[in-house]
């Protein structure tokens, strides 16, 4: 039982990070129709923004986290202006390959800037362990679960209680209608990129202390976030959350109770089964070939 508690909390924490990455991915997809294959590199950028602010610039953590997130928000806006706008009219395959190419560039730009040696990004609650029912649990894992929950609550408030968020939902539903209703569509589209970058930044900052920060960490996260999105349902926010937590838990519990060698095959296997049997996922859109 103690083992199960430890595994469960760990799985939740990892799942929380996947969920945040998946939410960012879904927000961009719903608003702009872009399937962002560079989503994993966004998270990696978030971790390295933390490395730059906390380790290189040696800022105290509240300031450093703020600066890192600010940098990520700027990056999201830049991405919108420099990459999204020129590519937005292209066919879906071009956008997929384009974001793959952007991801490769992002990863290797980070490699050039930070080198191949990994970094140890400290957590604000570094070294604090809690004992719950005999299970040792790091305070950081709990913090990750809490932050994920808070972020989900904030997003809900944004999308359902502010005019900004309602506008974003309107754009996601029907961009023409939104434009006709006088919404500043471009601004809302930009905002969705900024939001995605911010969420990836938060995921990255939380991930840094759990793993080491290295520039090749993006791809594995992306694969898991994709699986989470498919399982939860493409374009669905609750789906991204449920999918992320599910992938995180299945990874940790699957490695423990099924096979550690094939644990990733479990989440991909479930993803492929979902694609074949229920491509709209648990909560997702009905149309199969949107975009």
């Amino acid at each position: 039982m103690t083992d199960f508690i430890q595994l469960f909390i760990n799985g939740l924490a990892i799942g929380g990070v996947y969920a945040l990455a998946a939410i960012g991915f879904v927000i961009v997809y719903s608003a702009t129709g872009v399937v962002n294959f560079a989503a994993g590199q966004f998270v990696m950028f978030g971790t390295f923004a933390g490395v730059a602010m906390l380790l290189n610039a040696e800022l105290p953590w509240p300031v450093g986290y703020g600066a890192a997130l600010l940098a990520m928000a700027l990056f999201g806006a830049l991405f919108f202006a420099v990459l999204y706008l020129p590519l937005r009219k292209s066919p879906v395959v071009t956008i997929i390959i384009g974001t793959v190419a952007i991801g490769i560039t992002m990863q290797n730009a980070a490699l050039l800037a930070f080198g191949s040696w990994p970094f140890r990004l400290p957590s604000p609650v570094e070294g604090v362990n809690l004992t719950i029912a005999g299970a040792t649990i790091s305070a950081h894992a709990i913090a990750v679960v809490v932050v994920t929950a808070v972020m989900v609550a904030l997003l809900w408030l944004l999308f359902f209680r502010t005019s900004l968020g309602i506008g974003m939902r309107a754009v996601a539903q029907d961009i023409q209608a939104a434009r006709l209703m006088g919404l500043k569509v471009n601004r809302l589209l930009a905002l969705s990129w900024v939001l995605a970058a911010l969420l990836a930044g938060i995921a990255g900052l939380m991930l840094g202390p759990m793993w080491f920060a290295d520039t090749s960490m993006g791809d594995p996260i992306a694969l898991k976030a994709f699986a989470a999105t498919i399982i939860g349902g493409f374009g669905s926010l609750p789906g991204a959350i449920v999918g992320g937590l599910f992938v995180g838990l299945s990874e940790v519990l699957g490695a423990s109770y099924v096979s550690s060698a094939y644990k990733d095959l479990i989440s991909f296997g479930i993803m492929i089964v979902f694609l074949l049997v229920r491509p709209q996922g648990v909560f997702g859109e009905r149309v199969q070939d949107r975009g």
Binding site: L7, N10, E251, A255
Partner: peptide, 20 residues
Amino acid sequence: MEAYGQNDKDFSAQLLGLRG
């Protein structure tokens, strides 16, 4: 005996499994 993939970052299942 437990294994992990080259890109794995979380080893809690394997380590706890061995402890168990």
